[in-house]
């Protein structure tokens, strides 16, 4: 009976989340150079340290950044194509106790409230390693100034139209 209980307890211990936990830990911090109140068009940088806390090296490491918008009614993952040119880092192997430091630059495209997170997976690991969230807010910035656009948008076609009228008159005058 005691032996059975011991075997059950040992099995549960092996299958427990702690035993399956990733050997990787990820810290995520905004760079000290980031603006305190960023607005559209600003650049932010996040810094991560991915550490292998396990007793063995991990192979085929890939880490990537994810960004989600959390505004009420606009909850969505953000396509990073235009936000960041640096979407993933890879390493063929990370030794036990080793770490990788990475900077994640990001250009702010749209206003709103966002949460950024960095995740890492390995070739054979069963668990996804994730960093804590880092939150930021992007202030709105109207980038197209109507005061500049209106004179150009209305003036140039009018100038060409005036050229056409002048040309027609000149031709009529010749005839």
């Amino acid at each position: 009976m005691k032996l059975t209980a011991f075997l059950v307890a040992a099995g549960l211990a092996i299958l427990s989340p702690a035993a399956l936990a990733s050997p990787l830990s990820i810290s995520l911090n905004p760079a000290s150079t980031n603006p305190s109140s960023p607005q559209m068009g600003d650049n932010l940088k996040f810094q991560t340290v991915i550490q292998n806390n396990g007793t063995e090296a991990v192979d085929g490491l890939i880490a990537w950044i994810s960004l989600v918008q959390v505004d009420k009614g606009k909850e969505q993952p953000v396509d990073l194509e235009d936000w960041s040119a640096h979407k993933a880092v890879t390493a063929s192997s990370l030794a036990s106790g080793g770490s990788i430091k990475t900077d994640w630059p990001m250009r702010l495209i749209q206003s709103g409230n966002y949460r950024v997170i960095v995740s890492a997976a390995t070739r054979s690991g069963q668990e996804l390693a994730t960093s804590p969230f880092s939150d930021f807010t992007v202030r709105q910035k109207p980038v197209v100034e109507s005061g500049r656009v209106l004179p150009i948008a209305l003036g140039i076609p009018v100038l060409i139209g005036a050229g056409m009228v002048l040309q027609r008159r000149r031709r009529a005058h010749k005839q």
Partner: peptide
Amino acid sequence: LSAFSLLLVGSTELSLLDNA
């Protein structure tokens, strides 16, 4: 070109597009 420019000014969504 004028229509696109005016659309950028007139549309709330488009007017917030990043300058680049």
